[in-house]
Design a protein around this nucleic acid. Structure first.
Length: 883
RNA sequence: GGGCGCGUAGCUCAGUGGAAGAGCACCCGGUUUACACCCGGGUGGUCGCAGGUUCGAAACCUGCCGCGCCCACCA
């Protein structure tokens, strides 16, 4: 038993200093293997795989936010008795990483081609081992309870085998194919990009009208006219109907091109006639396919004009004005440049304007896969939280285009395809020695690598050992929650679903919990470019990891963005310190945690009240985490609700009232002190465990000190089995109201806190009895002396009114008459307004008919209270001495 | 062009049919033996605008205004 005498508080200073405890605590957790999951365990599994950060990345506020939430989920489930696995790892981030290393090489005056493929890849691996994965160390600072023994990297041998296996199977099933298509091409990165690697931005362009003889076309990309192979009009357009089938001469080229009719053309737009450049525009390519047009490529991979003539060698942006000028000289620019805002694709990696380019690439046929991915959510096998965002998911999976998966990079999973001299394709599980079709021994492997998202799409099962049926895969798949930002739902979530539903019997996760984006204190998106980004480490250093985590969690409302500002973190730091000092108080007061709670009859009103509230708080926290299926309203994952509930309870109920109330019996000593110490210990034992998933460090330090137990990480999650006690809640409520009212009066009358006043309380029988038992508490909290229950308030005493009671205070003539009169006049006006309003409501015949009985009762009580208030205030005003 | 969301106190946001809330900021008071990273008290809102439904609307419906995000092969 801990007593006040041997309390281990000497070790606790008056302020919490996070940096002294965080590092050692984390190392201890890892060393003791708390985070290491056991596939052989009989406990139910609870699994989260981390959205793998880029190997080039470092921790930003968005990571800090999402990791806090995932960590809270994992830690709580572990406390609830689950075999909890949080699997960490990183993504090899093809283009990003290759760019970083190429920049490094450029500093040495080299390009990757100077090194050659093999040496370059060695260089990337070297970079990875030296500089990559900085974020992993930062995750330790955050307190992430991840299983380091299961750390994965998308380029690991195992994961590479998963990539290889699924590619081969999908190819065999016709779900992967090779074709010449218009793809997004980055002329700087010199690689194909998928649709999601292209960012559309509105740019101010110029719409230029060019005469092609009998028709005039309008375009924002004049230079591409060199590759035009037709002019298209709408088939029903009377202006041009007679021209369809004829030819026009394409200026500057001497070529003749046909005028064709195609439904795609919008007769309302521009002149209603469109130049068709199949090799440089996706729409035009489609038109070309329909009409059997030739594809004339006019640029090379760097978007430099290759057509022989005056424009050869010009970059596309140099060629644009040059071609325009040449056309103007010929008098063919009909309407001069018109400003025109349109959306232009940019490479999401380097910002270069993407060039649609005709090339031979590998694609995933997403149709059948996307259908399954949509159905899994439609039939509830995977739940999206918040549910409103499911629509966005459907929009995406139901309208997916085939996915271009080949990249002209070196860093990544090499496409497992071999070609023989005759062009036969061999796609084997293990490297081939001869062509699978003709047996030729001369084979060359495809030069390209796979899109990074191809391997990250396999993440939920490749990390657990797939394609082997490993114990991990059997135990921990499917994972429980995927927690990520709503911005990423479309590509990553959908791709994991598609792959998993192809390769596995189950969906990859049962719930997708979507978070918002982190914004600054003024609601702006945090971004490096705008200078609004803050390094989470800075605030962790300054205020502690728990403070940052708690501030982030407190703002987390499902699916909506999270603002974070330094003041909020500071506020959360203050909360950690408050907890620290409150627990210090508990320890110094000899709080105990051993044995059963004292019997109900031994508990004080305050004890009963705080235990009753404690039980409700546990239940509220559980509801916020898990949702409330019965109510059918809450979906769970309401971290903000959890945080706010716990902070309000800890600060406003435990600290502000219970501790103050507990001081009295503790100071009195004896059995009642023992009882209160036990309850105090119980409250902090439970409260600290409830807070542990969100603020692991400070709670670990305090909880282990309080309980002497090994670690909060492996402690049991509290349950809510405390008696709900409406009686003591009413009593404490009345006490709080009364004390607050007296305090307000004292403050208004500017009575020094040191001055203790005698007081009498006048109340109805029931309230009087209730309060009579607590005159000591009332006296202590409201700084009164000689609190007595009486029938009347002595003449000349000031009067404070609370619901159900009046308190007379002997101010011995110190009352400020003017201030008191002003206050009473104000009260009177308020009471009259209230009376009028409530009376009007009650006078409405429909109200009594249709409003539920409790509402009517409440309203009648309001009217009575207003009348009483008017009578009282009027009497007091009359009695107030003249100035 | 399509879709989704938001507009509540100075700021950031809770509140989904029965008396307008929290944190921060602000003002007043405080050497109260856990904590000044604190304690006590207080000011502050025709809940974007206009209609409608209802006995009753911040909440439900319609329209408008203002923001934001996502998607898109409108040259």
């Amino acid at each position: 038993m801990t007593t006040a005498d041997d309390a281990p508080t000497a070790a606790l200073p008056t302020q919490y200093t996070p940096k002294d405890v965080e590092g050692p605590l984390y190392e201890r957790w890892v060393e003791r293997g708390y985070f290491t999951a056991d596939a052989g365990s009989t406990r139910p599994a609870y699994t989260i795989v981390i959205p793998p950060p880029n190997v080039t990345g470092s921790l930003h506020m968005g990571h800090a936010f999402q990791h806090t939430l995932m960590d809270a989920l994992i830690r709580r489930k572990r406390m609830l008795g689950y075999e909890a696995l949080w699997l960490p790892g990183m993504d090899h981030a093809g283009i990003a990483t290759q760019n970083v290393v190429e920049r490094e090489l450029a500093g040495e005056g080299l390009s990757r081609h100077d090194l050659g493929r093999e040496a370059f890849l060695e260089r990337v691996w070297k970079w990875k081992s030296e500089y990559g994965g900085r974020i992993l160390g930062q995750m330790r600072r955050l307190g992430d309870g991840v299983d380091w023994s299961r750390e994965r990297f998308t380029m690991d041998e195992g994961l590479s085998r998963a990539v290889r296996t699924i590619f081969v199977r999908m190819y065999a099933d016709g779900l992967i194919y090779r074709a010449e298509r218009i793809i997004n091409w980055c002329p700087r990165c010199l690689t194909a990009l998928s649709d999601i690697e292209v960012e559309h931005r509105d740019l101010d362009g110029e719409l230029v009208s060019i005469s092609y003889g009998p028709v005039t076309v309008a375009t924002t990309r004049v230079e591409t006219m060199l590759g035009d192979t037709a002019v298209a009009v709408h088939p029903d357009d009377d202006r041009y109907r007679h021209l369809v089938g004829t030819e026009v001469e394409l200026p500057l080229t001497g070529r003749h091109i046909p005028i064709i009719a195609d439904e795609h053309v919008d007769p309302e737009f521009g002149t209603g006639a469109v130049k068709v450049t199949p090799a440089h525009d996706p729409n035009d390519f489609a038109i070309g396919q329909r009409h059997g047009l030739a594809n004339i490529t006019i640029m090379d991979e760097r978007a430099v004009i290759t057509v022989p003539g005056p424009f050869q060698g010009l970059d596309r942006f140099e060629a644009r004005p040059a071609v325009t000028d040449a056309l103007r000289e010929l008098g063919l620019i009909v309407a001069e440049k018109r400003p025109y805002q349109h959306s232009v694709g940019h490479c999401s990696r380097c910002g270069t304007v993407v060039e649609p380019r005709l090339s031979l690439q590998w694609f995933v046929n997403v149709g059948p896969l996307a259908k399954k991915a949509g159905d899994a959510v439609r039939d509830g096998r995977t739940r999206i939280v918040p549910g409103e965002l499911a629509k966005r998911y459907f929009d995406w999976v139901d309208n997916m285009h085939d996915w271009c998966i080949s990249r002209q990079l070196w860093w990544g999973h090499r496409i497992p395809v071999w070609y023989c001299p005759d062009g036969h394709i061999t796609v084997p599980e293990t490297d081939p020695t001869s062509c699978g079709v003709c047996g030729a021994a001369e084979l060359t492997q495809d030069e390209d690598v796979l899109d990074t998202w191809f391997s990250s799409g396999l993440w939920p099962f490749s990390t657990l050992g797939w394609p082997d049926q490993t114990p991990d895969l059997l135990k921990f798949y499917p994972t429980d929650v995927l927690l990520t930002g709503y911005d990423i739902i479309f590509f990553w979530v959908a791709r994991m679903m598609m792959f998993a539903l192809y390769a596995m019997p189950d969906t990859p996760f049962t719930t997708v919990a979507l978070t918002g984006l982190v914004r600054d204190g003024r609601g702006r998106k945090m971004s490096k470019s705008s200078g609004t980004a803050v390094d989470p480490l800075e605030w962790m250093d300054k205020y502690g990891t728990d403070a940052l985590r708690f501030a982030l969690a407190r703002g987390a409302n499902p699916g909506s963005d999270v603002p974070i500002a330094e003041e909020w973190v500071e506020g959360a730091r203050n909360f950690t310190n408050k907890l620290w000092n409150a627990t210090r108080f508990a320890l110094m007061s000899g709080a105990t945690i051993n044995g059963e709670l004292p019997a109900y009859v031994e508990l004080s009103t305050a004890d009963r009240w705080i235990l009753s509230r404690l039980g409700q708080v546990v239940a509220e926290v559980d509801r916020a985490y898990d949702g409330d299926e019965a109510a059918g309203v809450r979906e769970g994952y309401e971290f903000g609700e959890v945080s706010r509930t716990l902070q309000a309870f800890a600060w406003n109920e435990v600290c502000d009232w219970y501790i103050e109330l507990a001081k009295l019996p503790i100071n009195r000593g004896g059995r009642e002190a023992e009882v209160t110490r036990r309850v105090l210990g119980e409250v902090f034992d439970v409260l600290l465990r409830l807070l542990h998933p969100l603020m692991p460090f400070v709670t670990e330090q305090l909880w282990t000190t309080l309980t002497g137990a090994e670690s909060a990480v492996i402690a049991a999650w509290p349950n809510s089995s405390y008696a709900v006690d409406p009686g003591s809640e009413r009593a404490v409520g009345a006490l709080q109201e009364l004390v607050t009212e007296v305090r307000r009066f004292r403050s208004e009358q500017q009575i020094k806190p040191g001055v203790k006043l005698p007081a009498v309380i006048v109340a109805g029988a029931e309230t009087a009895e209730l309060l009579a038992a607590h005159t000591a508490e009332i006296g202590a909290l409201a700084r009164l002396t000689d609190v007595t229950i009486a029938a009347v308030i002595p003449a000349g005493w000031a009067e404070v009114v609370v619901a159900g009671a009046r308190v007379g205070l002997d101010l011995s003539g110190t009352i400020d008459v003017a201030a008191e009169r002003a206050r009473l006049v104000k009260d009177l006006a308020a009471a009259r307004a209230e009376q009028e309003q409530v009376a009007a409501k009650l006078a409405n015949p429909s109200f009594a008919d249709k409003a539920p009985a409790p509402v009517v009762e409440k309203t009648k009580a309001r009217l009575a209270a207003a009348a009483a208030e008017i009578a009282r205030v009027t009497a007091l005003l009359d009695a107030l001495p003249a100035q």
